[in-house]
Nucleic acid binder design. Structure first.
Length: 215
DNA sequence: CGGGGGATTACCT
DNA sequence: GGTAATCCCCCGA
């Protein structure tokens, strides 16, 4: 099938996750998230992320300390943190920061690169390719990411990350404010591959809404 | 133990 | 732009 994306990435190493969370939020732009699922290989290239910090970030789940839900955030960098949002959607994060510190990078949008037919079946909703993995709840559904993946090691699979051989330059990444927050809403912690048609439609500062057309 | 509020989305007007 | 869907977390009592 279309496995061209593999040429642009290499296997991730644990050391790749050692960067500070904000740097990791930028470095993950261009990385490929792969789920080796029962429905086949489902993969997408990351085009939008948000950083959630342990200090001075009231919007972070870790802000009030470790709980049963957020304990994966306090694990070693390179762990998956998956949680249920609004009672129905799952959000996928890459845990970052030192072991014991609650930080993570939320993945908000992917460019689909493999398993598109299976992704459409999982979405159970007809939509343009650019919307297939646009939005944190949509991409977890398209890739079949479940709460059972919470705490899994992203260097091992079945949920796996592939590292970009060439990272996006500073000019290629647009920085804005995070989406959907009431607290710490002004921090510039959202990173988007500039002008990507696969980014989520909701716009923070620095990314005007792009929701003029339906379907 | 009760209740407010989400790191969302789709569909309505 | 407004809001229902849907449920679990977590704070305060």
């Amino acid at each position: 099938v279309d496995a061209d994306w593999q040429k642009s990435v290499r296997a991730v190493k644990r050391a790749d996750f050692a960067a500070p969370t904000i740097d990791l939020g930028r470095a993950l732009i261009g990385a490929v998230l792969v789920h080796e699922s029962d429905a086949g290989v489902l993969a997408g290239r990351i085009v939008e992320t948000e950083a959630y910090l342990a200090e001075g970030d009231a919007a972070s789940h870790s802000h009030r300390g470790r709980t049963e839900r957020n304990k994966a955030m306090f694990g070693p960098a390179g762990t998956a943190y998956v949680y249920l949002s609004y009672g129905m959607h799952r959000c996928f994060n890459v845990v970052s920061g030192p072991d014991g510190v609650g930080e993570a990078v939320l993945v908000r949008a992917l460019e689909p690169v493999e398993g598109l037919a299976a992704m459409r079946a999982l979405r159970a909703s007809e939509c343009a390719e650019r919307k297939l993995c646009a939005g944190p709840g949509n991409l977890t559904r398209a890739l079949g990411i479940a709460l059972a993946h919470d705490g899994c090691d992203l260097s091992r699979g079945p949920l796996r990350l592939w590292w970009p051989r060439r990272h996006a330059s500073a000019e290629e990444i647009e920085v804005g404010t995070r989406i959907g927050l009431t607290k710490a809403a002004d921090l510039p912690l959202r990173f988007v591959l500039r002008a990507s048609p696969f980014a989520s439609a909701s716009g923070g500062r620095g990314s005007p809404p792009r929701r003029s057309t339906r379907s």
